[in-house]
Amino acid sequence: MAAAAAAGAGPEMVRGQVFDVGPRYTNLSYIGEGAYGMVCSAYDNVNKVRVAIKKISPFEHQTYCQRTLREIKILLRFRHENIIGINDIIRAPTIEQMKDVYIVQDLMETDLYKLLKTQHLSNDHICYFLYQILRGLKYIHSANVLHRDLKPSNLLLNTTCDLKICDFGLARVADPDHDHTGFLTEYVATRWYRAPEIMLNSKGYTKSIDIWSVGCILAEMLSNRPIFPGKHYLDQLNHILGILGSPSQEDLNCIINLKARNYLLSLPHKNKVPWNRLFPNADSKALDLLDKMLTFNPHKRIEVEQALAHPYLEQYYDPSDEPIAEAPFKFDMELDDLPKEKLKELIFEETARFQPGYRS
Rank of each mutant, 00 (worst) to 15 (best):
A2D: 09
A4R: 05
G10E: 06
P11H: 00
M13F: 15
G16D: 10
G22W: 12
P23G: 14
R24D: 13
Y25S: 05
N27A: 11
N27Y: 00
Y30C: 04
G32W: 08
G32K: 09
E33W: 15
G34M: 07
G34Y: 07
D44S: 12
D44C: 11
N47G: 08
R50N: 14
A52L: 03
A52R: 02
K54C: 08
K55P: 03
I56S: 14
Q62K: 00
Y64D: 08
Y64A: 05
T68E: 10
R70E: 02
I72P: 12
I72E: 06
L76C: 13
L76Q: 01
R77A: 10
I83F: 00
I83K: 10
I83V: 12
I83Y: 11
I84K: 05
G85I: 14
D88R: 14
I89F: 03
R91I: 14
P93R: 10
T94P: 02
V101T: 07
Y102I: 06
E109H: 09
E109K: 01
T110S: 00
L112N: 11
Y113I: 05
Y113Q: 12
L115K: 09
L115W: 12
D124H: 08
C127V: 08
L137N: 02
K138A: 11
H141S: 10
A143H: 12
N144V: 05
R148T: 04
D149L: 02
K151M: 01
K151N: 02
S153P: 15
S153K: 03
N158P: 03
I165M: 09
C166M: 08
C166K: 02
A171F: 05
T181K: 11
G182Q: 07
L184F: 05
E186S: 07
Y187C: 02
V188Q: 01
A189I: 09
T190E: 02
R191C: 03
R194Q: 02
A195P: 03
P196Q: 02
I198F: 00
L200A: 06
S202A: 05
S202I: 02
K203G: 07
Y205F: 00
S208R: 14
I211A: 04
C216W: 05
A219L: 01
R225Y: 15
R225D: 13
R225N: 14
P226D: 04
P226Q: 05
I227V: 08
I227A: 14
F228D: 09
K231D: 12
D235S: 07
D235H: 07
L237E: 02
L237F: 07
L237Y: 05
L237Q: 01
N238P: 02
H239K: 11
L244K: 08
E250Q: 14
E250F: 14
E250M: 13
N253T: 06
L258K: 12
A260R: 11
L264D: 05
H269E: 06
H269F: 14
K270I: 11
K272Y: 10
N276I: 00
L278K: 13
L278F: 10
L278H: 13
A282N: 15
D283N: 01
S284P: 13
A286H: 10
D288V: 01
M293F: 13
L294D: 03
F296Q: 02
N297S: 04
H299G: 12
H299A: 12
K300T: 08
R301S: 01
I302M: 11
I302S: 08
E303Q: 15
L308P: 03
A309Y: 14
P311V: 13
P311R: 11
L313R: 07
D318W: 14
P319L: 06
I324T: 14
A325H: 15
F329K: 13
F329W: 14
D332A: 06
K340T: 15
L343R: 07
K344N: 00
I347G: 05
R353E: 09
R353V: 05
S360V: 08
